[in-house]
Amino acid sequence: MQVLTPLFHVFVFPGFLFLIAFGLFASWVDRKLVAKMQNRVGPPLIQPFADLIKLLAKEDIIPESANRAMFAVAPLVAFAGVVASAIYVPMWSAQAANSFQGDLIVVIYLLTLPAFALFLGGWYSTNPFATIGATRVLSQLFGYEVPFFLACLGPALAGGSWSISEITAAQADGGWFIAAAPLSFIVAMIALIGKLERVPFDIPQAKTEIVSGPEVEYTGKRLALWKLSFLAETIVASALIAALFLGGPHFWGIPFGDMPAWLAGLVGLIVLAVKILLIVFFLSLTRAALARIRIDQMVEWCLLWLGIPALVNLGIIIFTMS
């Protein structure tokens, strides 16, 4: 059993299977919401799953001029990084599947792996659109990653811990850190758009400019893996923001302590899922309401309008704590 539990965490919940299933569901929610905002009908529930199956069945082509190893490994690295990070994010109770002091830093770094892998995969596929997209991935990374990290520091300081689980536990009495760090929360939400490369920050993929950028040469299974990586990252990063700012699986008035463990876990998971879907709703709203901006505008805007508010909020937290 002691051997099986970590395997269960990695492959079933909250890892591989759960991330895929919930990621597909969240992507359906996203597509349906955007469709409604655009006066369209939108896809049926099964659509993201059908798309995935179709992609898996398609031919897998590696361009002749590409670096085969890098090209093939990049999507695996991205997906592995996201699944690994899910272990340290609380999903059903304040305690994640595993935790230690400093796992916040590890998770933030693991969540940047998809971007780095996307850069490498795009760069080594040698397609001009892919290489341009790859350089945009890196430029964009500098735009959102620093503010995102600064924003995550806010709850860490407020909770007095570097462990996500402990930060979540510190909010169990209802004092969510969104109250202590409102600016950090907004910054984290906007930086999340950049991290997930969605409108208005879908600059590296920009299908109407550079034909989906780094992914342009990917087909079949590997393309499916890229799509899955970003779906899974949507879930994990949203769960991370929920854990840091919105009390994770907690909600006022739900007496987790009085319930049997399995029920508490189930209710906690549902509460978290609702919070994740709210974050997805925010992502859908920005996708429907905004146009894609240029990379130079993005980096400048993010460093100015995300970086400074995140720093200000940190200053306020440090000032009020001392």
Partner: peptide, 11 residues
């Protein structure tokens, strides 16, 4: 659509 604003396109 070209600048990634599909809502304008649909509407």
């Amino acid at each position: 659509h070209i600048i990634g604003f599909d809502t304008l396109f649909m509407q």
